[in-house]
Design a protein around this nucleic acid. Sequence first.
DNA 1: GTCAAACTACGATGGTTCTCGTACTATGGA
DNA 2: TCCATAGTACGAGAACCATCGTAGTTTGAC
Lengths: 116, 116
Amino acid sequence: MSSPAVSSRDLPHPACDEIRLEGVLHALSDPMRLRIVRELAGVTGELSCSDFDLPVTKSTTTHHFRVLRESGVIRQVYRGTAKMNGLRRDELDELFPGLMAALLDAAARQEASPGD
Amino acid sequence: MSSPAVSSRDLPHPACDEIRLEGVLHALSDPMRLRIVRELAGVTGELSCSDFDLPVTKSTTTHHFRVLRESGVIRQVYRGTAKMNGLRRDELDELFPGLMAALLDAAARQEASPGD
DNA sequence: GTCAAACTACGATGGTTCTCGTACTATGGA
DNA sequence: TCCATAGTACGAGAACCATCGTAGTTTGAC
């Protein structure tokens, strides 16, 4: 099969009412994590951890994905040996309307500015 | 006089092109600093450091204001013995359109939610 | 000149974070 | 069953951060 079933081992995610703005901002204040989120926002489906080519080791990558999940920014699920990641965009949009859009736009603008 | 002149001692502020999104997000990811920014956003003029009634010592307050200034979120100027603080709203709006509005709205929503 | 108010500088402390390496587990395929 | 792949757990190190207390500076008022 091309898409293995979701594994039984599942991961703890904060409920919507447990997501704190401060936690989200802290999660996104790290360049590596902001990069991950921007990449996730740019695709329609999910991406596995190994789809990202980050300049850090695998351990560190695991750490960053966990911070993003525990702050409520992404949702993670095991599928076969892979761990798939998706933005919790709908939930975040309901919780903090316009925030993700403004953040992603800000990140894009910063990247496009001559200061980089 | 009711409003002393601006003192000669002035403080270093980042130029607009030196303001980093990650730095702004980090600055706002602290509850004390988010509170300061919300309060500043709620008034028209400036507020002195001692206008805030924060549950930390004066040293710590100084620290938080410095983080906000160095990240580019606020502008500080001495006026007499007081240090006046103002949001760099116009500059931030030009740099990251809609971001401050979304952040302030998000903070307000979070405060209003039953989870608090 | 003296004094109080507002804020700073400095050092310390305890906690958190980013990073790594090594050893380990879970899954699916040969 | 054996192996390769994907990711984790754990411990460690270095850096950073929030907080405090004490001592100091700058300013304006008396």
